[in-house]
Each structure stands twice: as structure tokens, then as C-alpha cells.
């Protein structure tokens, strides 16, 4: 999805930009894999096999489809937001006012 740019020596201005964007994409794609696997794997494709397992009174596949996926989505967004805060700070692109406080 990202623009393919060769990894050769670029001027330092472009370097941090490319590095920031590459890390953002890596984080995003990792989390999106989980986003795909949990509901579509656990809640749709393998739901019948997982339903053989009981999870606190629920058939496991049914629980993933009606409860677990939603909790997963929440955790994924939280991880993304927290990690991106850290990435923004590391590369000095977080939004701060003159005193360096978060806006």
C-alpha cells in the first residue's frame, strides 16, 4: 500500500520522514492482521469448530462473534493510539504548544 521507495541513502530530511512512516505502517499492518483474524477467523470461518469448546457457559466461537471481537477492536485502537503517541514524540512531530505541553 505504501509508496515503494528504494532504501538507498537519501538526504537526512527525507530519512526521518520515511522512517516514521515505515514504522507507522508496520504498527498499523500488524494490528490490522489481528483485526482480521479474530472476527473473521474466530467468528466466521472456524466458528463451528470453536463452538465445540465451552467458554464460561458460551460456545467459544459464538462468544468471539458476539463479545470477544468487540473487546479486541477496543484494545487494538488503544494500542495504536498509545504507540503512535510514542512514535510522534520520538520523531518530534507530536502536537505541542510553545511550552512543549500537549495541545
Amino acid at each position: 500500500m505504501a509508496r515503494t521507495e528504494d532504501e538507498g541513502q537519501a538526504p537526512s530530511e527525507g530519512d526521518w520522514r520515511r522512517e516514521y512512516w515505515r514504522r507507522n505502517l508496520r504498527l498499523m499492518l500488524t494490528l490490522l492482521c489481528v483485526w482480521f483474524i479474530v472476527p473473521f477467523g474466530g467468528g466466521v470461518l472456524f466458528v463451528e469448530q470453536l463452538n465445540q469448546v465451552s467458554f464460561g457457559g458460551y460456545p467459544l466461537g459464538f462468544w468471539i462473534a458476539q463479545q470477544g471481537s468487540i473487546y479486541t477492536f477496543l484494545v487494538l485502537i488503544l494500542i495504536y493510539a498509545v504507540r503512535m503517541d510514542r512514535l510522534d514524540d520520538k520523531f518530534g512531530v507530536s502536537e505541542r504548544d510553545e511550552e512543549g505541553q500537549r495541545r
Binding site: K90, V93, R96
Partner: peptide, 19 residues
Amino acid sequence: LRYPAARRTPATGTTSEPP
């Protein structure tokens, strides 16, 4: 679009510690 703010010279001390 891809960068939340213009880059500051790496801040020292003034910003909060990363978690």
C-alpha cells in the same frame, strides 16, 4: 497529511517522559 505536526528539533527535558 502523514505527520501530525511540523518537526521540532528533538525536545530535551521540556516534554513529559514517554510511558
